[in-house]
Design a protein around this nucleic acid. Structure first.
Lengths: 355, 355
DNA sequence: AAAACTAGGTTAAACGTTTAAGCAATATTG
DNA sequence: CAATATTGCTTAAACGTTTAACCTAGTTTT
């Protein structure tokens, strides 16, 4: 009695999803035939296929992703890990990854590490738990231990890194040429007549920031400018720290006449300090950022920056993943895609265009 | 021959994941017992449980989420839809949703609509496809047709809206009191001696922006200020449009002496224009934003804004979802949680604190 | 006209868990 | 001490798809 009642209630609640079985019995064919029809198997007649598709639509059939994922051993889900999504760069990369993957029937799961190593590990666990078919990631600032990434590799799950990646980890990578970008920036500043160029860089331990630093140092050498250790500062590249480090530079007896900041947010902080202290940009101090965030073109003065081709990075990352799953052979050739970045010159460093 | 070879290769590749069966045969008990042991079922002896857990750890057992989700009919995944993640507000809401849900064994899938209705529909399809147990969403600016949200409801999947939600859709909602917030702002500006208060508002069709507009109008009335239609402008609230609309206001014969902008990004755009035109803030024109984005405290002058308690909104949204799944009974009492926002007074509107 | 294909399916097992139902052995109760 | 409960499992089915293997009737080849 109680059982019958509960069953009745259950039937009321579970708006009973249509399954392949329902379609099969409606057409008096086997579930297997339905499955094949829905996948356009060559061994099923056009007539049956059409009938199946019609009934499927009529009954509002939605394939059960979990069941097919379980059976096929793949989830058609790709995990994405980024430090944070609230910058235009990562936001745009994600958008493009999604666009490319959606076309191939994949969906993405976005997770943020907030630059925390622990969070990043949690995210990896979440993604592995969700049985993603691959992971596309950009590492947190904090991350130095690569065990968790090795864990992904050891499970045989394709791993693609972009922007923030490590060389030691032998995986596919998409990014820009940071070393060359620094050269472009220094060259540009030298052209503007700057002689004391400071660099507020990211953490040396992060490969891309290290490359920017190396590029900065080598470019100075190339132009016969002395390297002054006071002018090379390590930063976490937040707005706040940008303010701090700029203030620090202004406190020097011998101030720089140009500052190259390895991130736009920190460059914005620096800009604020310069504006507040009524220092003329670029006449007294020229400023260059990195990343070409939209706000660089909206602040006063507009900030010269490096465009990292975020949409291209996203697309390439997605394509690299797809290449991985398509050739399931062992011929896993390593892909390292290095794009050339563009220098976008704006008011903050353009002395020649002064009206 | 060929078969044996392919089988051999297969075994090489599939780093054979340990399953419950493996544990079972290792201990010579049934898979069912293992499953129960892992879930701390009371009908399993402590001795067996310990043994199972030890073997599970030794064999590096990872539960197959897909299988359990299929069997249990729930995925332990919650979908989150936001306009974009690149604002601190949404970023912070998401962070808190995740924190609360992770503790209960749920994971989240983040998707962005980029303020596009079509993208939002796609996102909903993705989430339904992924078999999420619930959806927490904030609607795109463009969204006026609610069919897709009805679709979620009709599938019996818990839907919780926050910030941008609609009244017509009869679902749980978490947000702040926008109407009252406008009152607080106008009151504050009146106290500062402002008499011509303009409002750059969001789209009227979006409920929260409409409420802010209504609050603005009613507050003017309350303080016996005339409503000048020239001073009430609709905007998409991006930085760019903030610049545009501010420029528009400055072109009036009779300029406002205060501008209340319904979003911080647009307020930033307005601030830039005012700064560029060397208009004294707040003496000539006072400025107030909405959202308390971190940069409001970093620009010059700092911008007065409304704090929306993003972390609280995130937590409450997650808790509301959890309440839904816990009481599976039909007693679906509707939750409308309206938080009181805080006005954070900063330099852009504080005339009394002038040094 | 026998042999060999082909078209168009069907059958049944499998993916890894969970869980209702069952059962034997031990413990508790009246 | 017989009746009843409890403990600690086992059995087997189920979740919804997919797929290898098989089957039958018709078609083509030789």
């Amino acid at each position: 009695m109680l059982k019958r009642l509960s069953k009745y209630i259950k039937n009321l609640n579970t708006k009973k999803k249509t399954t392949i079985k329902d379609i099969a019995s409606a057409l008096n064919i086997s579930p297997a035939a339905v499955s094949k029809a829905l996948h356009d198997d060559s061994r099923i007649s056009k007539k049956t296929k059409d009938a199946v598709k019609k009934v499927a639509k009529d009954l509002n059939y939605q394939p059960n992703h979990l069941a097919s994922a379980l059976r096929k051993g793949k989830s058609n889900l790709v995990g994405v890990i980024v430090p944070r999504t609230n910058s235009n760069f990562f936001s745009s990369v994600i958008e493009n990854i999604e666009a490319v993957l959606n076309k191939e029937g994949y969906h993405i799961i976005i997770t943020q590490s907030n630059e925390s190593y622990k969070k990043e590990c949690d995210n990896i666990d979440t993604l592995l738990f969700t049985q993603v078919d691959g992971i596309i990631a950009s590492m947190a600032n904090e991350t130095v231990n690569l065990d968790y990434y090795e864990k992904i590799k050891s499970k045989g799950i394709p791993l693609i890194l972009f922007d923030r990646g490590e060389n030691d980890l032998n995986v596919d990578y998409i990014g820009i040429n940071d070393y060359d970008s620094s050269h472009m920036i220094v060259e540009h500043l030298v052209e503007q007549g700057c002689k004391r160029i400071a660099h507020i860089g990211g953490y040396k331990r992060t490969r891309i920031f290290n490359n920017r630093i190396r590029g900065y140092i080598d470019a100075l050498k190339k132009h016969n400018l002395p390297l002054d250790n006071e002018l090379l500062i390590e930063s976490n590249l937040t707005i706040e720290d940008g303010r701090l480090k700029m203030t620090q530079l202004l406190a020097l007896k011998n101030r720089p006449d140009a500052v190259y900041v390895a991130g736009d947010y920190a460059a914005l902080g620096a800009l604020q300090v310069l504006n507040e202290q009524h220092i003329n940009i670029p006449k007294d101090i020229a400023l260059v950022g990195f990343g070409n965030e939209p706000f660089t073109d909206m602040v006063t003065p507009t900030i010269t920056s490096i465009d990292q081709h975020s949409s291209e990075i996203g697309k390439q990352a997605a394509k690299t993943f797809l290449a991985h799953v398509k050739k399931k052979s062992t011929s896993q050739t390593l892909n390292k895609i290095i794009l050339n970045a563009d220098l976008i010159v704006r008011h903050s460093s353009n002395k020649k265009d002064l009206s």
